[in-house]
Write a protein that binds this DNA or RNA. Structure first.
Lengths: 134, 134
DNA sequence: CTCAACCCTCACACCGATGTGAAGGTCAAT
DNA sequence: ATTGACCTTCACATCGGTGTGAGGGTTGAG
């Protein structure tokens, strides 16, 4: 599949797909005419990249994580250096921190919303628009 | 407490603390000499801000979330517009997405590490019990 | 053959988060 | 009164992720 299709299927701009490649995150093969040729799995990979970027990880880190994120795993253990293991463990911890922070805040928002909506439908507060509380 | 102490206690640069203020995230009072005066709760708030920024949220969003993140909640319900509720709900959903993505990836890393470590010290006989191999 | 719709590379531009430093005010200790 | 460690504002710089467009090649349909 060419870049346009992948862009459309992943909701990414062509520009970004080329940027990801420049950053070493994806390496599509090239057709005889120089066009990038993407394979089906790239769709998932790109979504993965987008998600991680959105969650604040820099491309440098994502590049290190990607090799261990495709599930039907073929691990060439000898290739996995102790430094790599170290990096992964650190990154895992950082991910956990992020998750904890986000979860804490999401729950706080949930509490807040619950309180607000409860009080609002309790009726002692006049409000201009229809109180949709379901 | 002055900016220097807050910076030290939160592991933030003074520059950033001023930036957060400029973005409307914190509003310290001012001493007679013009110095910023922070209160104890600001320590927590700044940590909150840092965590959310690190998790990829822009200051614009954080500004909207902060008012509902301090736990002993005093909600002035009349001030909570329906648009605000809407925003919060959307943001809550986005947080959940992020959490899901991060969790998925963290778990994938965990799986990977487990496999690598198991193979590395178990040889051909993969072991299920806690693999302490260092 | 021509035209539209793709693709390529390259480069400049923006925005948000952050660093750095200049020019100057305040305060506490010597 | 001077010095050093704070603080102030202002402004320019950097870096990563993105947008946009110029200038040009490929392909497929009419």
């Amino acid at each position: 599949m060419k870049i346009g299709e992948l862009a459309e299927r992943t909701g990414t701009s062509r520009r970004l797909l080329r940027y990801y490649e420049e950053q070493g995150l994806i390496t599509p093969s090239r057709g005889i005419n120089g066009y990038r040729e993407y394979q089906e799995p790239h769709v998932y990979v790109v979504q993965q990249i987008k998600g991680l970027l959105d969650a604040g990880l820099p491309t440098r880190i994502i590049r290190e994580l990607l090799p261990c994120l495709d599930k039907p795993q073929t691990i060439y253990v000898p290739d996995v250096t102790p430094e790599m293991v170290d990096t992964l463990q650190r990154e895992q911890a950082r991910l956990s921190e992020r998750i904890e922070c986000l979860t804490r805040n999401r729950d706080a928002i949930a509490d807040y919303l619950e309180t607000v909506l409860k009080v609002r439908c309790g009726g002692d507060t006049p409000q201009l628009s229809p109180a949709r509380c379901d």
